[in-house]
């Protein structure tokens, strides 16, 4: 089993099975460009730095990729039929503990940076699910966003959106 070492922004090393990294478009490109797949290249001696991903986030990304090992990798842009995307139970449980904190958002940004399309899709869908059926004040309360509107501004927004209700 070929292991490739990923180095997080806080300089933690993560040896990861080569096969898993096929899920990341960014890392896959780096592997090809660095010829890490060549038989005469010592992949273990050439760590891949990921300066935009912190160690704790990268650990979560790897955990997710391990669970989804062998899943078909999406091609192209995010062109799914969004109405049909369902976050599987395992992923829901995986995202939930950190959902309203910075960790989940950092995971989502990392998925975007690392070009892991399936993770990005599910992660975004999970975030959007937290907004569903909620009013603005309810979303603010759940996410701990302070209300910066004056009552007059809130009334103005409500009036502006009235026609769509």
């Amino acid at each position: 089993m070929v292991l490739i070492t990923l180095v997080s922004s806080d300089e933690q090393n993560f040896p990861v099975e080569r096969e898993l990294l096929k899920q990341s478009g960014t890392i896959e490109t780096l592997i090809v460009n660095m010829n890490l797949d060549d038989e005469d290249t010592d992949a273990a001696a050439m760590p891949i730095p990921l300066p935009n991903v912190k160690g704790d986030v990268l650990e979560k990304v790897i955990q997710w990729m391990e669970h989804h090992k062998g899943d078909p990798v999406k091609e192209g842009d995010n062109e799914d039929n969004n109405a049909e995307i369902v976050v599987p139970q395992w992923d829901d449980d995986f995202f939930k503990p950190a959902m309203y904190g910075s960790k989940h958002l950092e995971l989502t940004v990392a998925a975007s940076y690392l070009d892991i399309k399936n993770l990005l899709t599910l992660s975004c869908k999970a975030i959007s699910n937290t907004f569903k059926g909620k009013t603005g004040p309810q979303i603010r309360e759940e996410w701990g966003v302070p209300n910066e509107f004056t009552p007059e501004e809130e009334e103005a927004i409500r009036k502006e959106n009235e026609w769509s209700e």
Binding site: F131, K132, G136, Q138, R140, E148
Partner: peptide, 10 residues
């Protein structure tokens, strides 16, 4: 509706 709610958060 949800998009308008999200826009109304801040």
């Amino acid at each position: 509706e949800t998009l308008l709610s999200l826009m109304a958060t801040s």
